[in-house]
Amino acid sequence: MKLSRRKANQEKSGLLEVNVIDQWLEQHGDPAIERLVKKNLAISNKIAQILTSKGMKASDLATLMHKQKSEVSKWLSGQHTFTTKTIVAIEAALDAEIICVEPIHKNIYFTVHSRIPSNDFTQDEVFEESISDGEYVSA
């Protein structure tokens, strides 16, 4: 396939730009921000899924929550940083769970007391031969 020189240069510069951004992110990127972006996108996707499963549109959610349609659109774009208050309000409006907090497991422990054996009682000379006065019957 033949490409014009201009187009080829444009593509080349685009590739170069991506590489520069990647490099910059590798050096200066904040892992916490990366996580935040991922979580925001995940929350947006979850809200979109719930709306689909309930046969609703973004405008229906806006009506339910007395919000502007543009605000709900921003939520669904993944560019909004949600507060817990907003998430809970959406959950209440949709009657569905967006974020599930893992349950607390209660552990039951039992204690075993260990003792440090004293040296004297393992000496051979203090032991006498034992005999059995009957048979062992298994439980």
């Binding site: 009682f121 393992t122 005999i131 059995s132 006065d133 009957g134 048979e135 062992y136």
Partner: peptide, 28 residues
């Protein structure tokens, strides 16, 4: 060699042929 302590050891003691014997249940 395995060394055990049995708190209620004396409950299992008897005498057999002039020797100290223990129940088969405990020794088993």
């Amino acid at each position: 060699d395995f060394y055990f302590k049995v708190e209620n050891m004396l409950e299992f003691v008897s005498e057999k042929d002039g020797k100290t014997a223990f129940t088969g249940q405990l020794l088993g």
